[in-house]
Design a protein around this nucleic acid. Structure first.
Length: 604
RNA sequence: GCCCCCGUGGUGUAACGGAUAACGCGUCGGCCUCCGGAGCCGGAAAUUCAGGUUCGAUUCCUGACGGGGGUACCA
C-alpha cells in the first residue's frame, strides 16, 4: 500500500551519493537512500519546491550550522543530478534542500500518461491476488434509512471502488440487521397494533411507527419487553408464525432499501444479514469450548477477556439466546473460510470500537489456542474502520443532538435527497436552463452534495448534519467539483477538434499550470493515502486542490486585466497544450469523483 | 469509578516532529462588453492551560480544564 514517488527516490539516491562528497570525513551513520527517502517532507509552500530534505538533524554530528549543510549538500547533489541529466535540481533555503523538477518534462510525461491511460490513470495491480472484504451500510430491517446510516454507506462504497482500482478483488458486503431482540419487539407491536395496516406502501415507515410506539408504551408497561423477549425466542427456535412475520418484514424492507441504494448509486457484491448466521453459531461456540476459552458467568456463556482489559464477550445470554457478538464471530469465521481474505474492513461507527476489539481478540485467542501461525490468522487481517457520529443540528436550539431511532428522532435520507435535488433544479433553471435532462442532472448534483458532505472531515471526527451545509453548493462541496468538471467538459466541447496527442509543454510553464500538473501527478498518491488510511477523504481533499488550481488557471488575467483564455485562435499551439491540460484535469476529476461515488455531469 | 477519542480564527476543517499555521463558510473590499460567476483576486481573524522531551511541538509524553463515546445479557 506504500507509494513510492520516482522523483523522491531519485533525489534520495543522489543525496546518499552526495553526503560522502560533501563530508568525506564523517561516518554518515545509517545514511542510505532508503532512510533519506523517509526523511523527505513537503515544503511549507508548494512554490518552494516539490519536496524537501530538512538537514537540522545532521548539524550535531557534522558540527556545522544547518544552512551551511544545506548549501554544501545542495551543491554536491546538483553536480550528481546534472551528471545523470536528471529532471531534478536542488536549492538550499535555510536548513532545507528543496527539490525542483523540470516543469516541461514533468508536464510532458504526466500529461502523456493521463491522455494515454484515460480513466485507468492511477490503476494498479499491486492488489492482484488479494481479496479484500468491505462491510458497510448494514442497515436495520424495519427501520427507515436515516442519515445515521449515511456515513458507513458512503465511506464503504467508496472504499470498495478504491480497492478495486488498486487491483484488489473486492467483496462489498451489506450485513443487514435482520435479527435480534428488536424483532421480538416488532412482532409484539405488530400483533397489538399493526394487524390492520396496509403494508403494500411505505411499509418501512409504518413498521417503524410500530417500533417507536412499542418503546413509548414499554416505558410504562415493562411487561411488553418481557413479551418481546419471548417472541424473539420463538423466532429463534423457528416457530412458524414468528418466522413468517419476520420474513415479511425483511422482504418489504429490502425492497425499499434497494430503491434508496439505486438513488445513491451504492452497490454491493453480497447482501446478507445476521439471520444468515443462525445455523453457523453453534459450531463456532463449540470451537471456542473445545479451545477451552468459554466459561459461565452470571448464567451467561462467555469468552473471558479480562487479561485483555476488555469486558467478557457474551456467546449466549442466561436465557440461552445468542447476541450480535456471537453472530459477528460466526460471520468473521465464515467469511474467512469462504474467501481466505487478505483484508476485511468493518465500516462501523466508533461507538462500537470495544465490540470489535472483543470480537477480534476472541478470534485471535481461538487461533492461538488452535496453534495457527500468526501469518495464517484471520484476526491479523481484520480492521474496524471507525467513524464519528453524525449529529443532527437542531436549528431551533442551535445545538447538535444525537439522533435516536428508538425515539423516532431521525432524518430520512430520502427527504434529504429530495430536498437537495429540488434546490439543485432551482439553481440549474436559474443559471443554465439549456442543460440537457435537467431532472437527471439535478439528481446528480443533489447526490453529489450529500455524498461529499460525508468527506468534509476525516472519518474519525464527528460531523454535524446541518441542512445549510449539506445543501450548500459553494466552496468545498461536491457541486463545486462537479461544476469544475462540467466546465472542463464545456471547454472541450468548445474546442471542437480532437484533443491533440502531441503538444509543446513549454506553453504550460506558468506557475498556475505547473501547480495543476503537480496535482495531477500526485493523484495516485492521494489514492494510496485513501486506501492506506481507509478514508476516501484524502481523494476528496485532493480533488478540491486540483479543482481550485485549475480554476485559477481558468480565471487568470493578463496584463490588461483581461481573462487569459484557454482557447485562443491566435495561439494554436498554446491552445493545443492547454487543451491537453484541460483534458487531463477533466479525466482525473471525473475519475476521482467516481471513486468517491459522486456522479460527474457534463453540464449543469 | 475505569477505558478510549477529541480541544486550531465567529464557524466548519487542514497541516510525514520542520520554513511566514492552510482552506471553506460568514464578514469587509475587488473582478465578466463572460471559453460557464456553483467561479477568481485581496483584507480582518486562530493552535484551551501548565510542565516535559527536542536544534525545532498544533503534532510526541505527563497533568489540569472542557466536550464526546464506551463500560456483558440491545445492535
Amino acid at each position: 500500500m506504500s507509494f513510492k514517488d520516482n522523483y523522491q527516490a531519485e533525489f534520495a539516491r543522489a543525496a546518499e551519493k552526495a553526503f560522502p562528497v560533501a563530508y568525506p570525513d564523517t561516518p554518515s551513520s545509517n545514511l542510505n537512500a532508503e532512510s533519506i527517502f523517509g526523511m523527505l517532507g513537503l515544503p511549507k509552500d508548494h512554490k518552494m519546491g516539490r519536496f524537501c530534505l530538512p538537514v537540522f538533524r545532521f548539524a550535531k554530528e557534522l558540527k556545522t550550522k544547518p544552512p551551511e549543510i544545506a548549501q554544501e549538500l545542495c551543491d554536491a547533489m546538483n553536480d550528481i543530478l546534472a551528471a545523470e541529466s536528471s529532471d531534478i535540481r536542488c536549492e538550499a533555503v535555510g536548513g532545507f534542500v528543496n527539490a525542483r523538477i523540470d516543469p516541461a518534462n514533468m508536464a510532458r510525461s504526466t500529461l502523456s500518461d493521463i491522455l494515454e491511460q484515460g480513466e485507468r490513470f492511477g490503476l494498479s495491480d499491486e492488489g492482484k491476488g488479494q481479496t479484500t472484504l468491505v462491510e458497510y451500510s448494514s442497515c436495520n430491517i424495519a427501520k427507515p434509512f436515516g442519515i445515521g446510516h449515511l456515513r458507513t454507506t458512503i465511506i464503504g462504497n467508496s472504499l470498495r471502488l478504491i480497492f478495486q482500482k488498486l487491483g484488489h478483488t473486492v467483496v462489498g458486503i451489506n450485513y443487514l440487521g435482520d435479527w435480534g431482540t428488536q424483532f421480538g419487539k416488532l412482532i409484539v407491536a405488530y400483533r397489538l397494533w399493526g394487524e390492520g395496516l396496509d403494508l403494500t406502501e411505505n411499509a418501512v415507515e409504518k413498521l417503524y411507527g410500530l417500533y417507536v410506539r412499542f418503546h413509548k408504551e414499554a416505558e410504562d408497561n415493562p411487561e411488553l419487553d418481557e413479551q418481546a423477549r419471548e417472541a424473539f425466542k420463538q423466532l429463534e427456535e423457528g416457530n412458524a408464525e414468528e418466522q413468517k412475520l419476520w420474513e415479511r418484514f425483511r422482504t418489504l424492507s429490502l425492497k425499499e432499501f434497494e430503491r434508496i441504494y439505486a438513488l445513491m448509486g451504492i452497490e454491493f457484491d453480497w447482501i446478507t444479514g445476521e439471520a444468515f448466521l443462525n445455523d453457523k453459531m453453534e459450531p463456532v461456540i463449540e470451537r471456542f469450548r473445545k479451545a477451552g476459552l468459554t466459561s459461565i458467568s452470571r448464567g451467561a456463556e462467555v469468552v473471558d477477556l479480562h487479561d485483555e482489559q476488555l469486558p467478557p464477550l457474551l456467546l449466549r445470554k442466561a436465557d440461552g439466546a445468542t447476541l450480535y457478538a456471537t453472530r459477528d464471530l460466526a460471520g468473521l469465521l465464515y467469511r474467512w473460510d469462504t474467501w481466505y481474505f487478505s483484508l476485511m474492513l468493518y465500516v462501523v461507527a466508533t461507538s462500537q470500537s470495544d465490540h470489535f476489539k472483543q470480537v477480534f481478540k476472541a478470534v485471535d485467542l481461538l487461533e492461538q489456542a488452535e496453534g495457527i501461525p500468526e501469518e495464517e490468522r484471520a484476526s491479523a487481517r481484520v480492521a474496524h474502520v471507525d467513524f464519528g457520529w453524525v449529529k443532527f443540528m437542531d436549528t431551533a436550539t442551535g445545538s447538535a443532538q444525537m439522533m435516536s431511532t428508538r425515539k423516532g428522532n431521525i432524518v430520512f435520507l430520502e427527504d434529504v435527497i429530495a430536498k437537495a435535488k429540488a434546490l439543485a433544479r432551482e439553481r440549474i433553471l436559474q443559471r443554465n436552463p439549456d442543460t440537457e435532462d435537467i431532472d437527471k442532472t439535478a439528481h446528480m448534483i443533489g447526490v453529489g452534495a450529500i455524498v461529499f458532505s460525508q468527506f468534509m472531515a476525516k472519518r474519525q471526527k464527528d460531523i454535524s448534519f446541518d441542512w445549510d451545509q449539506v445543501l450548500s453548493f459553494e466552496g468545498e462541496t461536491g457541486p463545486y467539483l462537479q461544476y469544475t468538471h462540467a466546465r472542463l467538459c464545456s471547454l472541450l466541447r468548445h474546442y471542437e477538434a480532437e484533443v491533440p496527442s502531441a503538444f509543446d509543454p513549454a506553453y504550460l510553464g506558468g506557475e498556475e499550470e505547473q501547480r495543476v500538473v503537480e496535482l495531477l501527478y500526485d493523484f495516485p498518491r492521494a489514492l494510496h493515502d485513501a486506501a492506506g488510511n481507509f478514508d476516501p477523504y484524502y481523494i476528496g481533499t485532493h480533488l478540491l486542490k486540483l479543482s481550485a488550481a485549475f480554476n485559477k488557471v481558468y480565471q487568470r488575467k493578463d496584463e490588461q486585466g483581461k481573462i487569459d483564455k484557454i482557447i485562443s485562435e491566435d495561439h494554436a499551439e498554446r491552445t493545443q497544450a492547454r487543451i491537453v491540460l484541460v483534458k487531463a484535469v477533466q479525466t482525473v476529476v471525473g475519475e476521482g469523483l467516481r471513486l468517491l461515488g459522486i456522479p460527474a455531469p457534463q453540464q449543469m
